[in-house]
Design a protein around this nucleic acid. Structure first.
Length: 204
DNA sequence: CATTTGATAACG
DNA sequence: GTTATCAAATGT
């Protein structure tokens, strides 16, 4: 496993992230592999559910209205930067920043399917079934050990990154409204959540 | 349905 | 500086 530990050849390139449409990037993130190294091994998961946030216009985005604080700063970085934030007093959420610098768009990773390091995930999460390991945005952060230390890091670096994965046919992709943003008025109905049809690891 | 705390905005 | 409000969720 150490031979491909950091497999740079499969890492998604900068221009995957800097494209202008956050919706396109969100859709194409499905099937990709999210990797977080753990010592000499890797813990990873296939992305099966995402949501796009398109600030400053999107009322649901933390960058709504151009809000720029210490917390939201990473969103203004270049595409391919990570944005990890803390919510509800106990959970982290992992996001991939898209577009060019100064345009605060991001994609929230809502669920992944465990691929590598499943034993480590089980140790970190104490749940009955493997299905509950990573089927939610807060859960996957615990399973993959994603926290504040990964906020604002470069996804082309070696702390956390994304790799080429399975190609998902357009017919296998479903879309619908985002979750947990009841305060976002007309923006809450935008169908900016994408997931892989029938995948058991999509959040409930 | 209770939980739990950092970030943020609104004060003064 | 201090205080009040609330949040891209989860476990039960």
């Amino acid at each position: 496993m150490s031979a491909e530990k950091n497999s740079p050849a499969r890492k998604l390139p900068r221009d995957f992230y800097t494209r202008p449409s956050v919706l396109t990037v969100a859709r194409e993130l499905l099937g990709k592999l999210l990797v977080v190294p753990a010592g000499d091994t890797r813990v990873s998961g296939k992305i099966v559910e995402v949501e796009a946030y398109r600030g400053p216009h999107d009322r649901a985005a933390h960058s709504y209205g151009g809000r720029r604080t210490k917390r939201t700063e990473p969103m203004y970085g270049i595409g391919g930067t990570s944005y990890v934030f803390f919510v509800y007093g106990m959970y982290f959420q992992f996001n991939v920043v898209t577009n060019v610098a100064e345009v605060p768009h991001a994609v929230l990773i809502r669920a992944v399917e465990p691929v590598e390091g499943i034993e480590l995930m089980r140790a970190r999460r104490t749940v009955r079934t493997d299905r509950d390991l990573t089927n939610g945005p807060g859960k996957l952060c615990i399973a993959l050990n994603i926290d504040r230390r990964l906020d604002g890091v470069d996804l082309l670096g070696s702390d956390v990154w994304l790799e080429e994965g399975e190609r998902i046919a357009p017919s296998q992709i479903q879309r619908g409204p985002r979750i947990g943003i009841d305060y976002a008025e007309e923006w809450k109905e935008k169908p900016w959540r994408f997931w892989i049809k029938n995948n058991p690891f999509v959040s409930r």
